[in-house]
C-alpha cells in the first residue's frame, strides 16, 4: 500500500492487520501495542537483559558503530523506549548536536526520560511522543534515524518508512535494528522453542505478564524477513540499502541512505 492511499479506498481485508498471530482492525493495533508496552515498561530493561542474555547491548553498539555519528549531528531515536541508544548518541553528538527520543508510548517515554536524567544526560536530548507513521518533524531534519526493535510494532510499516525518509536529510541514513529470521534451520528451531515456550514463562516470572511476551514472540515471526524489509526500504526511496545479520540472523541491522 502506498503512503498516499486512504484506508477508505482499500478492500475490507486491508483494513485489518496482524497483532502477533491474530488479525485485528488496523485502528485497534495501536492501542493494543500501547497496552503491551504500558504493561512491560517498568521491567523493560531487565527483561531485555534476561531475554537476550545482555547481547542486545552489543547489537545496539553495532548499530551505533554503523551510524557514522559525530559531534554536531541531529539524531532521531525512534521507538527509543528506555533510551539505550539515545544515551550514547547524546554523549557523541555533544553540545552542538541534538538527539530526539521519540516513542508512541508515553509510559516507555517516561521510563526513558527518568533513566537518562538520572544518568545526568540532559541538555541536548528532547522527548517527543510521536507515531512513526506520521512523524511531527519538518522535511530533511535529521542526519541519522534509528529504530531499534520498534518497526515490527508499527501498524503500517511502509507508511512509517516513508515518513522516516521524508524527515531524513539528503546524505542521512536510516538504521533499522530488528528481530529477523535466523539463517540456520537448526538455530531457527531452537530459537522457536525458546521464543514460544521459555520467553512467556520468563515474562510471567519477572514482569508478571506472559501475554505480552507471547505477543513479542508472535510479532517477531510476523515481521518481514531480511530481503523483504530491504525491498520495502528501497520502495520508499532509500538507496544503497544493505543488511547485516547479527547472532545468526536472530537480529538484522538494515541500513539505507537518502540522497
Amino acid at each position: 500500500m502506498s503512503a498516499s492511499e486512504t484506508p477508505e479506498s482499500q478492500p475490507q481485508q486491508e483494513q485489518t492487520t496482524h497483532f502477533g498471530f491474530k488479525q485485528v482492525d488496523k485502528n485497534q493495533k495501536v492501542n493494543m501495542v500501547k497496552d503491551v508496552f504500558q504493561s512491560v515498561a517498568a521491567k523493560y530493561d531487565i527483561m531485555n537483559d534476561l531475554m537476550s542474555l545482555g547481547i542486545h547491548r552489543l547489537w545496539k553498539r553495532y548499530t551505533i558503530d554503523c551510524s557514522g555519528v559525530r559531534a554536531g549531528h541531529k539524531v532521531l531515536d525512534l521507538a527509543g523506549g528506555t533510551g539505550d541508544l539515545t544515551a550514547k548518541f547524546s554523549r557523541i553528538v555533544g553540545e552542538s548536536g541534538q538527539v530526539i527520543l521519540a516513542d508512541i508510548n508515553d509510559a516507555m517515554l517516561k521510563v526513558g526520560r527518568d533513566k537518562l536524567r538520572d544518568k545526568g544526560i540532559v541538555g541536548n536530548v528532547e522527548y517527543v511522543q510521536a507515531n512513526a507513521e506520521e512523524l511531527p518533524f519538518p522535511d530533511n531534519t535529521f542526519d541519522i534515524i534509528t529504530i531499534a526493535f520498534g518497526l515490527r510494532n508499527v501498524t503500517d510499516k511502509d507508511k512509517a518508512l516513508a515518513s522516516m525518509y521524508r524527515v531524513l536529510k539528503p546524505g542521512g541514513r536510516l538504521l533499522v535494528l530488528e528481530f529477523s529470521k535466523p539463517s540456520n534451520e537448526i538455530l531457527n528451531k531452537v530459537y522457536d522453542t525458546y521464543s514460544f515456550h521459555l520467553l512467556p514463562k520468563i515474562g510471567q516470572l519477572v514482569a508478571n505478564d506472559a501475554d505480552s511476551y507471547q505477543y513479542l514472540a508472535e510479532s517477531i515471526r510476523m515481521h518481514p524477513e531480511q530481503e523483504v524489509l530491504k525491498g520495502m526500504m528501497e520502495n520508499v526511496g532509500f538507496e544503497q540499502t544493505t543488511y547485516h545479520n547479527l547472532t545468526g540472523g536472530i537480529v538484522a541491522l538494515h541500513r539505507g541512505f537518502k540522497f
Binding site: 558503530d65 557514522g68 559525530r70 550514547k88 554523549r91
Partner: peptide, 20 residues
C-alpha cells in the same frame, strides 16, 4: 574514542567519510 563526561569507545568505520 569520543570524550564527554565519560569516554565512549566504538569501532571506527572503514568508510573515510564516517571517520571524522
Amino acid at each position: 574514542f569520543s570524550f564527554s563526561s565519560q569516554i565512549d569507545v566504538r569501532i571506527a568505520s572503514q568508510d573515510p567519510q564516517d571517520t571524522i
